[in-house]
């Protein structure tokens, strides 16, 4: 078979070759960078769809290769250094959440996505129990499963799993140790001592007799209640029986119990 320019079909076929689009390599490679955060320096991996993976350098002994290896094991994609940080990442890591920050949740199960999305809605300075996350994710009975998803949270700090605590008022585990969890929450001005003291008296919800609304104790609406009008409840059911309605902001479950 000769290709000598005299075969117009072969020539025309050769002209069908096309330069690749400039974004092709971006669809293959994930970018990584190191950035300061509330957990010290963190390594961050992100694609064109958003941030995919965050790990504190401390937990990897500052070894970027260890980060790369755990990223590849989990996502199976090659890494290359980032030219710059994606929009909203740096302020969010320092504790000032930016709405422009996008997360890449592809490759996660629907339940994992729902758990992370619900957790992301917990405001700074507030906590919610694991049961709340499970319910917000649409599977109220999957409390343990929700906990397992958060224990593997690909994006700590960006998805604030440190704000999810046990229903009995104790902090519960954190992927990088409960000491870090406590420090993050205290930095956000969560009054952990009060939460524990209330729980010891069997109080898991606070209501205001002026508004008739019942909240989680850390909800910003609960923190505004004048002590003279504040009432503690063991369960939302007890509060509802006393004529209170669940807060629309922190959404305590109407059927929740103190356990």
């Amino acid at each position: 078979m000769m290709l000598n320019g005299a075969d117009p079909i072969a020539d025309a076929l050769g002209a069908l070759a096309a330069p690749p689009p400039t974004g092709l390599a971006d669809k293959v490679f994930t970018a990584w960078l190191a950035a300061p955060s509330r957990l010290g320096e963190v390594f961050v991996a992100f694609t064109g769809h958003g941030v995919q993976f965050v790990r504190p350098a401390e937990t990897l002994h500052g070894d970027i290769d260890a980060f790369a290896e755990s990223y590849r094991d989990r996502f199976g994609r090659p890494l290359r250094p980032a030219a710059r940080a994606p929009s909203g990442l740096l302020p969010t890591l320092r504790g000032r959440p930016a709405t422009s920050l996008r997360l890449d949740l592809r490759g996660l199960s629907e339940f994992e996505r729902d758990v992370l999305t619900a957790t992301r809605r917990i405001p700074a300075g507030e906590t919610r129990p694991y049961g709340w996350v499970a319910r917000e994710a649409g599977r109220p009975r999957a409390v343990r499963a929700a906990g397992s998803v958060l224990a593997r949270n690909p994006m700590p700090l960006l998805v604030p799993c440190h704000r999810v605590v046990r229903a009995d008022g104790r902090l519960g585990d954190y992927m990088f140790g409960s000491a870090h969890k406590e420090k993050l929450l205290r930095d956000e001005r969560v009054d952990l001592d009060e939460v524990v003291a209330l729980a010891r008296q069997g109080v898991h919800y606070l209501g205001s007799d002026t508004t008739g609304v019942v909240c989680f104790p850390t909800c910003h609406n609960a923190r505004r209640i004048d002590p003279a009008h504040r009432h503690g409840f063991r369960s939302v059911g007890a509060a509802v029986a006393a004529g209170y309605r669940p807060c629309r902001t922190c959404r305590p479950a109407a059927d929740a119990t103190s356990a």
């Binding site: 070759a17 330069p19 690749p20 689009p21 092709l24 390599a25 490679f29 090659p78 890494l79 290359r80």
Partner: peptide, 19 residues
């Protein structure tokens, strides 16, 4: 270095693969 080497592999073959 698998990742750095793979960047070279993509660069060298993306036109053929895309075409």
């Amino acid at each position: 270095d698998l990742d750095a080497g793979f960047a070279d592999v993509v660069r060298a073959h993306e036109q053929v693969v895309y075409s």
